[in-house]
Design a protein around this nucleic acid. Structure first.
Length: 195
DNA sequence: AGGCTCATGACTC
DNA sequence: GAGTCATGAGCCT
């Protein structure tokens, strides 16, 4: 079987690996976009996690989420969430993000290097997993770099979708390959068909 | 400490 | 194309 993850819209199987430290999530808020309702999780330091819109209503309702209009929010989080929402909207339409919310990314050293390298890829550009590994100083850790992409807690804003497999093939995507295609095409990036 | 799984890539048919 | 292998990191036992 090919490893085609396009089917399962929400990967609940894999717990978010954030390294050793546990991260306290204070609140999760829905962020409406033209592409659906994302779910944003905030710690005391900023945006900690982002989930793609659930495909089924039940999955959505089962989430522990908080309606921002019903709950008194710390002003910091309210601001972060506005920044997140605007950033998402921009990114989904392929435009550069002007202002990011503070990101509170927990992970191993290696993963953080990868995520940081991802953020240096400008919209409309792509690199390969090999290039990504080279950029963080571990040119041979190609597969591991892919693994760290998969562990990216904040997809879309940390643009793991801009990493393609060799010869412009699609590679994988934790949120499902349909999302990867959508994000890439919004940025005007042409792909080879098929994986 | 050992084994297994990968969002790979390069190489062989 | 399909099969195969080397490979680093992470996450289990």
């Amino acid at each position: 079987m090919k490893r085609n993850h396009a089917m399962h819209p929400r990967a609940l199987k894999k717990p978010i690996s954030t390294g050793k430290q546990t991260q306290r999530i204070l609140i999760s808020l829905p962020a409406s976009t033209t592409a659906g309702e994302f779910l944003a999780f905030y710690s005391e330091h900023g945006l900690a996690r982002l989930e793609f819109p659930p495909h089924s209503a039940e999955a959505f309702n089962s989430k522990t989420k908080t309606d921002p209009s019903n709950v008194p929010l710390p002003s910091a989080i309210r601001l972060w969430h506005e920044q997140t929402s605007r950033a998402l909207e921009a990114a989904l339409s392929g435009q550069p993000v002007e202002t990011f919310p503070p990101l509170d990314l927990h992970g191993t050293e290696f993963q953080r290097r990868v995520w940081s390298a991802l953020r240096q890829i400008p919209p409309g550009a792509t690199i390969g997993y090999a290039e990504l590994a080279a950029r963080i100083g571990s040119p041979k850790a190609v597969r591991a770099a892919g693994g760290a992409c998969g562990a990216n807690p904040v997809p879309v804003l940390v643009p793991c979708h801009r990493v393609l497999a060799a010869s412009r093939k699609l590679g994988g995507f934790s949120g499902g390959l349909d999302w990867k295609r959508k994000l890439l095409s919004a940025e005007g990036i042409a792909l080879k068909l098929r994986l």
